[in-house]
């Protein structure tokens, strides 16, 4: 009887041990945990990674990444991360302090799990400042809004695919196929967007914040001025008067506005110039109907074309 019980116990223990040993290997493709600083990069990671990855973004949708303040929960996200994808160029400058706190070499700048998505992008508006810039504002080395040129998504996804393959080499085929599928859809959509915006090439616009150089370059728009004199600084009356007079001289056709910036100054300039104020999404999820990367452009292109077309091309 005793021996039987002992045998049972030993048997159970052996089974448990076997289970424990086999656990880490149990799912052949344990999902890769990716943390992206912004929703845009998170969206591109999930296009490439598909169901092989779980993606979290640190900055929630609809929050200004340039004015973001990390909180304790973000440290937890970073601790779980197998791969960290950042915008770079000083846009998510707060990330370095966070990573330093959890003291993980892999996640630090230049570490094996830290992907700076700006690598290889043709950068616009190079500035002489160092990476962490004056006043905590996030336009450091160059203008950081490069994901707003759909062609840059080709470079960004190439980097993401490279890094994912390095982490999960067994899934190489799947990852490359995911990316190829995304690029096919992107190509088709890109042709559609260019056709829609083609009649408005050279149109003069005023923007609240300098978010649009890459978008403007790709779709041949001319953003002549910014309502915000410096990022995060409210415009002074002299600056607003200048906006209004240059805007009317240059025949500006619309005011572009980011959803999370205060809109009273943009509304005032739009009212004085009698042009529409167009609220465009600069990030995935910042406006309803922009739930993934292609939807972001679908929304912005349609919204802009509608505003510009209202008075005839």
């Amino acid at each position: 009887m005793r021996a039987g019980l002992l045998g049972l116990v030993i048997g159970a223990a052996a089974q448990l041990a076997a289970l424990l040993v086999s656990l880490p290997a149990a799912p052949a493709w344990a999902a890769v945990n990716v943390v992206a600083t912004t929703t845009d990069l998170a969206a591109l990671v999930s296009e490439v990674g598909g169901n092989l990855v779980t993606v979290e973004s640190i900055v929630p949708a609809g929050v200004d990444p340039e004015a973001f303040e990390p909180r304790p929960g973000d440290l937890g996200k970073l601790r779980r991360a197998d791969l960290l994808v950042r915008v770079g160029l000083g846009y998510d400058y707060w990330l370095d302090a966070l990573v330093r706190q959890i003291d993980d070499k892999r996640l630090m700048r230049g570490g094996e799990a830290n992907l700076d998505a700006s690598t290889g992008i043709p950068l616009l508006e190079i500035r002489g400042q160092s990476v962490v810039n004056e006043g905590g504002h996030a336009h450091g080395v160059a203008n950081p809004h490069y994901w707003l040129d759909p062609d840059n998504a080709i470079t960004i996804t190439a980097n993401i695919a490279d890094w994912l393959v390095r982490i999960a080499p067994a899934q190489r085929e799947q990852i490359l196929a995911n990316r190829a599928g995304f690029l096919t859809r992107l190509e088709a959509a890109r042709a559609r967007w260019s056709t829609i915006l083609a009649p408005y090439a050279g149109t003069k616009l005023i923007a609240y914040h300098n978010s649009w150089p890459y978008f403007a370059r790709r779709f041949r728009l001319d953003v002549i001025a910014f309502i915000e004199p410096k990022a995060g600084v409210a415009p002074s009356p002299a600056h607003l008067a200048r906006m209004i007079s240059t805007g009317s001289k240059a025949n500006v056709r619309a005011i572009l506005h980011e959803p999370y910036e205060p809109d009273d100054a943009s509304r005032l300039v739009a009212r004085k110039l009698s042009v529409p104020m167009v609220r465009l999404a600069i990030s995935v999820g910042s406006i309803e109907g922009t739930s993934d990367y292609l939807a972001l452009f679908d929304y912005n292109v349609a919204k802009l074309a509608k505003a510009l077309g209202a008075r005839g091309p």
Binding site: P60, A67, A234, Y260, E261, P262, R267, L268
Partner: peptide, 20 residues
Amino acid sequence: DRAPQGAEHVKKILIGSILT
């Protein structure tokens, strides 16, 4: 804290927007 434009709103409530 979690509202979009939150930081902007806090600043605006402090310095106002009388200009516009």
